[in-house]
Amino acid sequence: MKLISAFIFCGFVCGISQYIIEKTKFTPGHMNTLLVVIGCFLSGFKIYDKLILKFGAGATCPIMNFGHLLVTGASKMYDKYGFIGLFKGILENAGGGISIAIVSSFIIALIFKIKH
């Protein structure tokens, strides 16, 4: 049952963003930025936690999850250290994703050459 709900939610997000790209002049870069901001918004009001409970990996697979990771790290450290914790913890959870993306893309760029 969780497989079907993951399929539906992830497909729904992809379908809507494809519709926005077709209708407006957004590039995929704009769309990704918008989705991260929407993820931050949903996570700020604790809606995203419910979505993850309901749809499982279908909700954590889109780039919206990146915003959720940023917000949860910041709010967790705010409870611990006060105001300065916001800046300490903003990259606590999401930093892993950024580092892996940087390292893997650097290694791949060294190994492969562009094919035309």
Partner: peptide, 16 residues
């Protein structure tokens, strides 16, 4: 993505 993620993340992390 990282710039707007961090800026809005700090704001919404405070709200959360």
């Amino acid at each position: 993505i990282i710039l707007y993620g961090v800026v809005f993340g700090i704001i919404f992390g405070f709200i959360r």
